[in-house]
Design a protein around this nucleic acid. Structure first.
Lengths: 214, 214
DNA sequence: ATAAAAAATAGGAAAAACCCCTTTTAGCGT
DNA sequence: ACGCTAAAAGGGGTTTTTCCTATTTTTTAT
């Protein structure tokens, strides 16, 4: 009997390609692919037959990102193993995925054989990590980086998006039908929460966390 | 006889996956894959047997990017058809690839069947374009967008990159060993050149034009 | 209904950003 | 060596941002 795999990636070409690749593996077959976390929820809810052994999740998705998706899967289907796939090795991302419950993490810059080995190890030992991940984990234990997953209020999000434009805070206030002083408040509290000191920091945060897409 | 394809992408997983996919196509087979433009040059130089009918090039590669790679292939092996692959639809990129000599452009968010059709069309008609590309071309002919490609001086680039950090202009001046007033000058002239009115505009310009990568 | 918490609003000062215009300095060609 | 041009630096004024602290309004929970 083969283990079942679900691929979640918004790049159809990539997910289909991975599907083809996984299907060549002896022990694995792809049940279906999804373009975002929402589709996963629908599929899982639709039928118990849709619950796979392993989910390969791309971290950078527009609608419901990899971290949220992982959290949801882990919370609702604890028996499903999530393996994260991503192009970036940006500090924090890996840890966030693991904290969200991913059982391992692979960069897209890996080989077919490595993917197969990872899948096998997951089913055998329930565990797979690349070396990089191990190092990152060590860093995090020593408490250097990797803190939070802050959640924002609707208005904060709206404000952040507008702050990524050339608008003045006063103009942003008008757009949001709020007093400029309220906007000041939003800004200041975000500066503190995010540990930044000016609008550029805010813009960068918004972009890196896909709150604003340039 | 099958047409030969070479895949150029720094993400091994993706290139291998595409390789597997292409190999399922009736009329096509993958000769080999490369991680960057440099490898392509080596391979092509090594033997005439290594010259394929089609090269699938990822635009975003670290070492020698897709545009350069395309230029080199087109200049040295005019019979080879280059098809660009990319995740981004950022204005300009597509046109740059086509100007560099790519025969077509596909977003990674496409399906297996579309890729196969694209390859077939290229070999049959020597031409393939998605609708989006056509529209962009029309825009560019009618001269609305895509006019510029301003070229910046080295210092302007450096300054723009630093402006994307949380540094103050004064701090940027120190980093660049220049007077704050010089930095003022850089900023003001960029504001005029780029038709923007504040630092957020500068940051966004830098990101959109890949001068700074978040 | 009322206490507590959260959101919105204010005032004001100091720093930074923005803008325009002038002067000095440095590099380059003939 | 001279003049030309571009880069660098400066002066000074206006606006915006940043960073405090404090008050009012609205929401939420019990």
């Amino acid at each position: 009997m083969k283990y079942s795999v679900v691929v979640v990636d918004d790049h159809t070409l990539l997910s289909q390609a991975i599907e083809g690749m996984v299907n060549t593996f002896d022990k694995f077959k792809v049940l279906y692919t999804c373009k975002n976390g929402g589709e996963v929820q629908e599929k899982f809810a639709a039928s118990p037959r849709n619950i796979p052994d392993i989910v390969l999740v791309d971290v950078n998705m527009p609608v419901m990102n990899g971290i949220e998706t992982t959290e949801w899967i882990v919370a609702n289907y604890p028996n499903v193993n999530v393996l994260a796939l991503s192009v970036e090795d940006a500090d924090g991302t890996i840890l966030k995925m693991l904290k969200a419950g991913a059982i391992g993490y692979l960069l897209k810059d890996t080989k077919k054989e490595v993917l197969e080995k990872a899948l096998l190890e997951i089913m055998d030992n329930g565990f797979y990590h690349t070396k990089n991940v191990t190092n990152l984990l060590l860093d995090s234990v020593s408490g250097k980086k990797s803190k939070n997953h802050i959640d924002f209020k609707e208005n904060e999000i709206k404000f952040m998006r507008l702050a990524c434009s050339e608008l003045t805070y006063k103009e942003i206030a008008e757009k949001m039908f709020l007093s400029p002083k309220t906007i000041d408040g939003y800004r200041d509290s975000l500066f503190t929460k995010l540990d930044i000191r000016n609008r550029v920091g805010l813009v960068m945060y918004a972009i890196k966390n896909k709150i604003y897409t340039p």
